[in-house]
């Protein structure tokens, strides 16, 4: 049985100019003695959207946080294997983690604007990265908010608290905050799970327009969303010892219409998960 999903036509995408942006090779991730990811290997193409799907607890977020080293914040984390950004190993001890995260920005599940004005939220990153000129900051803030499709809604309330706008607007503000530091990759960890359907669609449209300039990886538990927005999809599952493995990885259309693995088919047709 195949369910009908609105699958994007990937042949229309400019896949020819895409290169491997991020690469994970035989990655194992441990939290203390618990293995969270096992033997993950995948190449993330640039200028496209990659979706990571799978049941709860299968390590989707851990895989996502591998690429900007956010897992480092957890005490007792250990990474084996190789992860590369543009061919440079990012777990090299010589890597400046702050510099890496500037290039690989992240948007979280729950919108987390800082308790400061809309303007300051967006200007925060550039300021910390050394931009002091007010004019330059204003330019960056406007550009980032426009890019995040939020400018028209907030241009008259730039001095209001970032917490005073709606949830969907807050999430786009968080995207603008990431765009303001001019990243190359944007990681999104279930960015719509706290939003209503209308706000969700707005974020999805935004993601499609951002995909022209940025490499986007999105973790989602919403399969329709993965089908709607992504070019490539990775399906993850838990092994009996709860370690996450990559079951299948390929073009979204193929994964959803003609999955190679029985487990992928079972999952996307709703037999479990």
């Amino acid at each position: 049985m195949n369910i009908k999903l609105n699958v994007p036509d990937i042949s229309a995408r400019p896949t020819d100019k895409c290169v491997t942006k991020l690469k994970a090779e035989r990655v194992n991730l441990y939290y203390g003695s618990f293995q969270c990811l096992r033997n993950i290997t995948l190449d993330i193409p640039s200028c496209s959207i990659t979706a990571i799907i799978g049941p709860s607890g299968c390590g989707k977020s851990s895989l996502l946080r591998l690429f900007n080293r956010m897992n480092d914040l957890i005490h007792g984390v250990r990474v084996e294997g190789n992860v590369e950004l543009d061919g440079t190993p990012i777990y090299d001890p010589k890597i400046d983690v702050a510099e890496l995260r500037k290039r690989v920005g992240m948007v979280f599940q729950k919108p987390n604007p800082f308790p400061m004005s809309v303007f300051e939220n967006v200007a925060y990153g550039p300021k910390r990265h050394g931009i002091k000129s007010r004019g330059e900051l204003e330019e960056i803030v406007e550009k980032s908010l426009r890019h995040a499709a939020l400018w028209d809604e907030v241009k008259d309330k730039l001095s209001q608290s970032g917490l005073s706008i709606s949830g969907g607007q807050q999430q786009r503000l968080c995207i603008a905050r990431v765009l303001a530091v001019e990243p190359e990759v944007i990681l999104m960890d279930e960015p719509c799970s706290a939003l209503d359907p209308v706000a969700t669609l707005k974020i999805e449209d935004l993601m499609r327009s951002l995909a022209e300039d940025y490499t986007i990886i999105i973790v989602t538990h919403n399969m329709q969303q993965a089908a709607r927005v992504s070019d490539t999809a990775a399906f993850m599952m838990m092994e009996p010892d709860r370690a996450g493995v990559l079951v299948e990885y390929g073009p979204t259309a193929q994964l959803f219409t003609n999955p190679k693995d029985k487990r992928t088919e079972d999952y996307i047709t709703g037999r479990f998960g």
Binding site: N68, M70, L73, A98, E99, L100, R101, K102, R103, G105, M106, V107, F108, K110, N112, P113, F114, P115, Y124, G125, R128, H129, C174, R177, V178, A180, V181, P183
Partner: peptide
Amino acid sequence: VPREFREGSLAIGVTKWQTVRHI
């Protein structure tokens, strides 16, 4: 201070000390 604020700051390449100082 909620963890979300720290993560939001660290996730855009702001250093730990800057995050402590400004957030």
